[in-house]
Amino acid sequence: MIKALGYFIEIIKGSIITTRHFVVNMHFHILKVLGFKTKRKGAVTIQYPEQKREIASRHRSLHRLMKRADGKPRCVVCMLCVTVCPSECIYVEAAEDPDPEIQKYPSIFIIDLSRCCFCGFCVEACPEDALRMDTGKIEFAEYSREDMVYNLEKLIE
């Protein structure tokens, strides 16, 4: 019985907390609706598609392939990204460039984003700074798995 009483007190306490939250937030909401702008918002919600949170500079988003000055991909097909990729979602094939300073360029560069886990190892492994994950694009959705396979043209922009 006494145990139940203690329990009862805690129940009351709990209700007071939620009631307080309700009353305080409601107060601010109403003030806002009435046009009294206060600094404190009634909610911590960010209204996503209109309001966007600032992405941290080291945030890992959609990959992109960097270009040389002449527009060719910077990638030299060292395949370190392929090697380090834990989800084996990158596939690269090399072709021979007539320029002896370049020699090797990617004829195929595929990232299967539906497999990608965005660990960023590929970016860290890249010795040529050819691959970056700094586009800030985090909204990419497709209707089929095939469309999630990004090829060279899609990645180089």
Binding site: H21, F22, N25, G42, V44, T45, Q47
Partner: peptide, 10 residues
Amino acid sequence: KESAVIQDRI
């Protein structure tokens, strides 16, 4: 709505 307000949401 009420649950949202209680939980500082919209």
